[in-house]
Amino acid sequence: MNNRIDAHQHFWKFDPVRDSWIDESMQKIQRDFLPEDLLPLLQENQFSGCVAVQANQSEDETNFLVNLAAKNDFIKGVVGWVDLRGVTIEERLHHFSSNKIIKGFRHVVQGESDDFMLRKDFQNGISALKQFNFTYDILIFHRQLPAAIELANQFPDQPFVIDHIAKPDIKSGDILSWKKGIQEISKTENVFCKISGMVTEADWKNWKTDDLKPYLDVIFENFSADKLMFGSDWPVLNVASDYTEVVKTLEDYIAQLSVENQNKIWYENAKSFYRL
Rank of each mutant, 00 (worst) to 15 (best):
N3Y: 09
H10C: 04
K13A: 15
V17W: 09
R18I: 11
R18L: 12
R18A: 15
D23F: 10
E24C: 10
S25G: 08
Q27K: 15
K28F: 06
I29N: 09
E36R: 14
L38S: 08
P40E: 15
L42Q: 08
Q43M: 07
Q46P: 05
F47W: 09
V51W: 03
Q54V: 04
N56I: 13
N56Q: 09
N56A: 13
N56C: 07
Q57D: 15
E59I: 07
E61N: 04
E61T: 03
F64M: 08
L65S: 14
L68T: 09
A70S: 07
A70G: 00
N72F: 12
F74T: 14
V82T: 06
D83S: 13
G86L: 00
T88M: 09
I89C: 07
I89Y: 10
E91M: 05
L93T: 13
L93Q: 03
F96N: 01
F96I: 02
S97F: 01
N99D: 09
K100Y: 09
I101G: 11
I102C: 05
Q110K: 11
E112V: 11
K120R: 14
D121C: 08
D121E: 14
F122E: 04
N124E: 05
N124R: 11
L129N: 05
N133S: 10
T135E: 00
Y136R: 02
L139E: 01
I140K: 04
I140W: 07
R143Q: 08
Q144T: 05
L145D: 01
L145R: 07
P146A: 15
A147E: 02
A148R: 05
I149W: 02
I149H: 01
L151V: 10
L151R: 13
N153G: 15
Q154K: 07
Q154S: 11
Q158F: 04
F160T: 13
I162M: 01
D163C: 10
H164E: 12
I165T: 13
A166Q: 04
K167Q: 14
K167E: 03
P168Q: 00
K171G: 14
S172A: 12
S177R: 02
K179W: 03
K180H: 13
K180Q: 12
I182T: 06
E184P: 06
T188R: 09
N190S: 09
I195F: 11
G197A: 06
G197N: 10
T200R: 00
E201K: 01
N206T: 14
W207V: 08
W207G: 13
T209F: 10
T209G: 06
D210R: 05
D211W: 08
L216W: 15
D217M: 05
D217C: 04
F220L: 01
L228Q: 12
M229H: 11
M229Y: 11
G231A: 05
D233Q: 02
W234A: 03
N238E: 09
N238A: 12
V239S: 01
Y243K: 09
V246F: 13
L250K: 08
Y253F: 14
S258D: 11
S258P: 03
V259Q: 15
E260R: 15
N263F: 11
E268C: 00
K271W: 06
K271N: 13
